[in-house]
Design a protein around this nucleic acid. Structure first.
Lengths: 383, 383
DNA sequence: CTGTTAGCGCTTTCAT
DNA sequence: ATGAAAGCGCTAACAG
């Protein structure tokens, strides 16, 4: 019978009824010393075949399992890599996690995953938990925007815990990172629109900007204090416009909250313009879904009324009518690379900071078309 | 390529350069005994305000962080709940994880997540890892189909680790579980079809069945050795048919592999029948996507040519043209409930096994319509 | 209220 | 090749 003492601070020690066998018990059962048993079980040092066999048999009999806590206690190593994703319900991160796990499968390491739900406070707590659990490295998709939001990362660094950033670089931090070529991917997408003849190209989601500051400089400045990946995507957008000599029009960059509901309104407004968007690049799945709803609400159809390219391919995109052109992020690849870098750091190789950029791939489908001839102008492809 | 030292057994002990402060150091700095420091830091026992202040100051100064491994070592408790999901890239499980994390947020417990990728071998390894890490409880979405595939679960049970099953009961195991009302949800969906006048109702994904055994009994028998949730959904389907006096036609239940590609072919065949399906219930997102592709390939449209209801609502479903009627699984709720049950078990309450069933909700959208009048019969609703 | 002592289960010198 | 003993950082008895 387990004695239950309700001491609030200290949880009751687990009932020892089914206490697992310890190495001492295995040693006793096998008639050898603890050290010999440990060597046989741990497969190191030198053990006579005879002793080894007896130990293994005893372990089997007692259903011995090593207590990894105790092992880590003495070795100072947990064989565990902590992963903190910004939002586990984002399929992108789910894919990344899978990539990490895949890469680790071939090793003795295990990934333990925590989600910060895009909240800095939760991210900090998660880093704390992982440090306290003595993980050997941390793979982190951080929500930190500003340098003064990075104490938790600096703390981990000062404790010599290797950190690999994924998906998002953090401004002001010189850390290993694995990211997508966000800027180029966005630029290529916009180029695609330009080639088709579009000049009114929308961008969903841009940064929230105070109404007064809604000019090019204001928007770009606001983007600087957003997630690195968002900033990059917006930069790619502006670069492609510049290339094509298309003036930047802040009205074509949303300033709404980053959720589906708000997007419906924001993009609806963009469609109601006297000179509406004829093409749109969306930076996330929810941005795309909101955009699609706004298009439908306006009674419009893609690609006839508007061309679409979205970040984050999904099997759904292929069954839309017509199917959507998407930018596929190589999430598995990204996860695998992150795991590799973490492992390399753990090994202790003292190499320079490495930032690996993995290219996203445009998946062309049927959501692209030339812009409709503007009202009052007879149809018949201009160029 | 990083240099990999393949020392299989013993990883290098982490450099102690930035060795974190221990409680002994804090105690010394504060000029008190280890125990007093521990009490102050751990917020238990009785400590004089003066001593407490000094300890806290010292801890702050040395940037002390408790080593949770050491703590767990002596307390026998890790304040950690292990979560094993069948597939982390399935948005359903992502939502469940989030629900678990939400519920745990209010406690001292942390969830650590592992994905088994629907592979029994990985699941077993994951259970092993969690046992070795001494988690206080395990929340598990198991891929185990048969009683003889459950040794790992039995093992954990025999070690008195509370286990809460999610999404899938495991046949032959009497364990706490939190599940969806799969059978009723499927039955209601089919009833909906029946009410609209459908009598040729497809079911994607059914169990794989040897061609020879493709009769009602064969299909149901095959379903018995599939995931519990799948079995239930098929049962709901057959129950609704029985109710309506519609004969079970094995041709309307797929027997293909459970992936998108295979589904396209399988459902295509169902559409090519002389007496094709006029409605279809899909049990997973990939099943739905494959089905939609087959419909498109056949040049058909929903809901005119075929009505659709799918399991697992997604924001995508709402922007399909027309939007799809879906069965929304309350994943957050399910996760929260699972966490609650796990916590309750940890507390040691010795209650009976509890199975909580959370209802799924049909989200009606525009993908439902009466069947087209069969060829050669003039239109005009029969009943 | 506080310090001392004894472990938790494991790995690792260090003798033998 | 093997065993005895020390110790990882912490908490928990037990004295004071």
């Amino acid at each position: 019978m387990a004695a239950h003492r309700q001491d609030p601070a200290v949880p009751a020690r687990r009932a020892r009824s089914a206490a697992p066998a310890t190495i001492a018990e295995v040693a006793a059962e096998a008639g050898v010393g603890k050290a010999t048993a440990a060597r046989a079980l741990g497969n190191y040092g030198a053990v006579s075949p005879d002793a080894r066999a007896r130990v293994l048999a005893a372990a089997e009999k007692l259903r011995y399992r090593p207590n990894s806590l105790a092992r880590s206690m003495t070795t100072g190593v947990t064989q565990t890599i902590g992963v903190i994703v910004a939002d586990i319900s984002n399929p992108f991160f789910a894919g990344v996690i899978r990539g990490i796990a895949d890469a680790l499968d071939a090793t003795q390491y295990t990934a333990i995953v925590l989600s910060a739900d895009e909240k800095l406070a939760k991210e900090k707590a998660a880093v704390g938990v992982l440090m306290d659990k003595q993980v050997d490295a941390i793979i982190l998709a951080s929500a930190a925007l500003l340098p003064d939001q990075t104490e938790h990362i600096l703390e981990a660094m000062s404790r010599n815990i290797p950190i690999v950033l994924i998906d998002r670089k953090v401004r002001g931090l010189d850390l290993d990172a694995v990211v997508i070529n966000n800027r180029e991917a966005a630029r290529d997408a916009v180029r695609r629109f330009v080639e088709l003849g579009h000049r009114r190209i929308g961008f969903v989601w841009g940064p929230a900007v105070r109404d007064g500051a809604r000019d090019r400089a204001g928007v770009l400045a606001a983007a600087e204090i957003r997630l690195w990946s968002e900033t990059e995507r917006l930069r790619g957008y502006t670069e492609a416009l510049d290339e094509a000599g298309i003036p930047f029009d802040p009205v074509l960059v949303t300033s709404c909250d980053h959720n589906e509901e708000a997007t419906v309104g924001a993009f609806g407004a963009m469609l109601a313009l006297p000179d509406p968007a004829t093409a749109v690049l969306t930076t996330e799945t929810d941005a795309l879904v909101g955009t699609l709803r706004a298009i439908r609400d306006a009674g419009l159809k893609h690609p006839d009324d508007i061309s679409i390219i979205g970040f984050d391919d999904s099997s759904w995109a292929s069954v839309m009518a017509p199917p959507l052109t998407m930018i596929a992020q190589p999430m598995l690849e990204l996860g695998r690379a992150a795991a590799r870098h973490a492992l390399a750091r753990i090994t202790g190789d003292d190499f320079d900071v490495v930032v690996e950029t993995i290219p996203a791939a445009l998946v062309p489908r049927a959501s692209l078309a030339p812009p409709r001839a503007p009202a009052g102008v007879t149809a018949g492809g201009g160029r």
